[in-house]
Amino acid sequence: MGIVRAAGLRHDYTKYREDESEVKVRALDGVDLDVKEGDFIAILGHNGSGKSTLAKHINALLLPTEGTIWIDEIDTKGEENLWKVRQRAGMVFQNPDNQIIGTVVDEDVAFGPENLGVPTEKILHRVEEALTKVGMLKFRDKSPNRLSGGQKQRVAIAGVVAMRPRCIVLDEPTAMLDPTGRKDVLRTVHELNEKEGVTVILITHYMEEVVDADRVFVMDKGKIVMEGTPREVFSRVEELKSHRMDVPQVTELAWELKKAGLALPDGILTTEELVEALAALKH
């Protein structure tokens, strides 16, 4: 059984128009999902495809209109399970400034475990542990306001890590960051996945960030429309583009070269792979 499992998940939003009439908007339209514990999952999809709505179901910020989603076998619909669900599945959002509440880094990271009712003497230990894991311990007594975007996101991740979740959902965590900030956040998330075995669900618009994932899901119109390893998904360049997605620049270059007549394999993901494939052609 997977750590995150969904069956026939549907979610309707109600929109109220000026004339007070109601419009139903279907954000999720029959999503089935089974995420193995310890996997690194990436979710792609254009703005409005339903990926953030799906993410919010994973830690019960939203509840399904129809269908069921289980986190570690717990149905998110049961109100008595709310905190169990949120402890198991933590969430990091796009804008670092919207999710930092403490005036000191330490305090901010302590917020989560404190809410879970962790005894005070243990909180300090958890905070240290979490900040160590994201490489931010030396900033523990600094004000979050003075950190860079990437550092703030790592503090936000530490805030989730301090709750010792089994699964972390990150909704476009790098959209507002510069290249270094992006790299640092990505590295942190991969380390948590590899060293701690935390399941990661990463939502992103940067195709390059998806290359190292175990599985990729592409969403469109509230459904999962493509699924596979990064290599499988990025081999289908035209299909991806029809869903308003793209491929990493190197994959695009390889695809262009292939169209121009070079005998290259499908789904080249990294510079090294392309260089090797081209070197093989040369001889």
């Binding site: 290249p179 510079t271 090294e272 081209l278 070197a279």
Partner: peptide, 19 residues
Amino acid sequence: GLAAPQITYCMHALKERGF
């Protein structure tokens, strides 16, 4: 804290391999 486009790295790597 910046970088070059991915393609630039690719071209440098190819050059090193004798392209």
